[in-house]
Design a protein around this nucleic acid. Sequence first.
RNA 1: GGCCCCGUCGUCUAGCGGUUAGGAUCCAUGGUUUUCAUCCAUGUUACAGGAGUUCAAUUCUCCUCGGGGUCACCA
Length: 461
Amino acid sequence: MVVTRFAPSPTGYLHIGGLRTALFSYLWAKNRGGKFVLRIEDTDKARNSEEATQAILKAFEWLGLEADGEITYQSQRDEIYAKYIKQLLDEGKAYKCYMSKEDLTELRETQMANKERTMYDGRYRDFDGTPPEGVEPVIRIKAPLTGEILVKDGVKGTISFQAEDILDDFVIARADGAPTYNFVVAIDDYLMGINEVIRGDDHLSNTPKQIVVYEALGFDIPAFYHVPMIHNSAGKKLSKRDGATDVMAYKEMGYTPQALLNFLVRLGWSHGDQEIFSFEEMIELFNPKDINKSASIYNTEKLDWLNSHYIKNTSNTELAELLEAYDIHLTSHDKKEILLDALKERAKTLKELASLVTEIVTTPIEFEAKAIKKAFKDNAFEVLKAYSEKLTANEPHLPSDYHSLMEEVVSEMEIGFGKIGMPLRVALLGKMGGPNIDVIMAVIGKEETLLRITQAIEKNS
RNA sequence: GGCCCCGUCGUCUAGCGGUUAGGAUCCAUGGUUUUCAUCCAUGUUACAGGAGUUCAAUUCUCCUCGGGGUCACCA
């Protein structure tokens, strides 16, 4: 069974890049009928926070990505790691290194000065003398010093590293006994049964080290898929400094989970020419072998397009519910269908949709100068008054009712349609643009329409 | 700097030796619309460069250039 994972360190909110690799992992697990598990890498106590973990979980919940099984917290697994450290020590595959931090720094500086590769010199690798006083040792793993390490990657192909280029006896446990990242990752992935690792390609150069751990412990090596980074417009790795990378910020901006997921799945992955994917289709069609090799630049133009697409294709009932979050209460409005049908094709985000609704249901307080100049000229007020009289004498309900009355005025006064449309529009909204006026009137009703016409004439006479 | 990865329209991408190099987005223009938006149509724009291999290279190889990632007792 395929088991994939997402393993964030809880140092902040869930960001776009993390979400994409999580999505890929989730999709692949579900495609294979396998499991997607979550592991919180919270070994760095200074930088981690419980709020960050909760923020990540909340984002997952919003997007409908549910992890299978219990969440694993590395901070609760010290005993497990200690056991494996002891095992390697006992087997002579790891050793205690008594080199002080100062000596290490000095060594590194010397190497840098000589333009050599900075690496541990292995001075305690075969040490069997008396340890120096007062130094708490770190544990180092005996890494192969020569030979080739192959990383079989499902995205990039097989990558060859030379041990002498990249490896030294790296630390697996700090002086305080805390295990290090490359060590625990390998152990956890193995113990959690993870056999397909999908992660950012910034981890590619860590992989040989993890392979060293896998091999020292006799673990099976999982399949790796290193997905390319998402870059900012400057072409650099997307970071929290780039703004708008908090997944939950997209909720606040009025994006739907469906649009965000669709946008992200197409960043670095494609299925022919298809652009729109339902969640079910993503699961059915996703395969990590189709992931691109090259990084992509983060640009939200397409997200806006997708979001408006999904808004247009969302039922009015559901939209009304989503708008509750913006303090717009339409769920029991009798003209809900008419209103939302007219507005949903003009909004890129739910937030925009909310403000469009507000614009219509709110009586205008101000009138745009440009609009007044263009609409309230000639006999505009005469036309508006004529329309008011028509309204008063009738009981219109549907947009078509209001429209018919406009037609009557037009034909009786022998004017063009624009002569009534424009002034009426500005009287109703205080500005140009917007949905059909008959729709607006049907939504706000006869009384409100009359009121707005009256006030428009009063305020602009 | 060492090591590793990458390089098709501005952006997201299709392509897997022979294509008028396709789609989407963006932008522009036209049509529809009383307005705006939607929608429809049309259009501009790309194989980083240079050597090979081949009858034929966007596609395979090498080099150059460019970009990125990574080099901790962080994860």
